[in-house]
């Protein structure tokens, strides 16, 4: 049996080309990557490297123009039924309370959200928003809003989590705290997680493997195993091994021509 067969998510030469009036634009060159059950993979690269397009192909929101994305042996044709997605923008509905926003996925599917209320409250408590469930989103800070969005993705207890630069809009301290929060949330059950980011330290901190991507051509250039202990905590960030990974990936980008000067 090939290693791909045991993978939960399998990118097989998955590529995306957009036809425009001035010719074809390649968003993602053929990407091949197998992601095992429970693994966290970071797609790391500068803007234009196709990392978000790749994630949207896994989410079933963008169809590949070449190759295939396969989840549990079946080609992806639309959003998978065990998917939690956190976007860069929190996308909270201003007309719903914090609790209502966390329960939104059930409402959208036409399911009764009430059986999940206790669970939603527990999640909000775990991210430090216990007293905020009746507040409206506009009463919260950016970091608190994104925490609500994370709870909204987690409430469905998904097997697969897709995080599309979820912390990019936050300040440095909030971002680091959120990375710790997500690491903590993943403790109860390891979930297959794909994180899109342009921040090297975030990729190293969160991931088991980091896919180093470049723009022009938009492709995965290298996959780096991050052999740091779990659970990931503040101490790991301050360790020498962590710094070595960050420096190593940084110099890899330099040698790939992403950074120069």
């Amino acid at each position: 049996m090939s290693p791909e067969a045991s993978a939960l998510i399998d990118l097989r030469d998955a590529g995306k080309t957009y036809a425009t009036r001035t010719g074809d634009v390649v968003a993602v060159e053929k990407a091949t990557l197998s992601i095992a059950n429970g693994e966290t993979v970071a797609l790391l690269g500068p803007s234009g490297c196709g990392k978000s397009t790749l994630l949207m192909m896994i989410a079933g929101l963008v169809a590949p123009t070449s190759g295939a994305v396969v989840i549990r042996g079946a080609p992806v044709t639309g959003p998978h039924n065990s998917l939690g997605v956190v976007f860069q923008r929190d996308l909270l509905l201003d007309w719903k309370s914090v609790l209502g926003n966390v329960l939104l996925p059930f409402e959208l599917r036409g399911e009764d959200p009430r059986p999940h209320e206790a669970e939603a409250r527990a999640l909000l408590e775990r991210v430090g928003l216990a007293k905020f469930e009746t507040k409206r989103p506009f009463e919260l800070s950016g970091g608190m809003r994104q925490r609500v969005a994370i709870c909204r993705a987690w409430i469905q207890n998904p097997d697969i989590l897709l995080l599309d630069e979820p912390f990019a809009a936050l300040d440095a301290f909030t971002r680091e705290q959120m990375q710790l929060d997500v690491a903590r949330l993943s403790l109860d059950r390891p979930r297959t997680t794909i994180l899109v980011t342009h921040e090297i330290s975030e990729a190293v901190f969160m991931a088991d493997r980091v896919a180093v991507m470049t723009a022009r051509p938009s492709q995965i250039r290298e996959i780096i195993h991050i052999d740091l202990p779990r659970p990931r905590n503040v101490a790991i960030r301050e360790s020498g091994a962590f710094g070595a990974y960050v420096t190593g990936i940084h110099s890899r980008f330099s040698s790939l021509g992403v950074l120069h000067g």
């Binding site: 959003p79 039924n81 939104l104 599917r109």
Partner: peptide, 8 residues
């Protein structure tokens, strides 16, 4: 967001 929640 609605699509990945498989909304009606």
């Amino acid at each position: 967001l609605a699509a990945v929640s498989r909304a009606k």
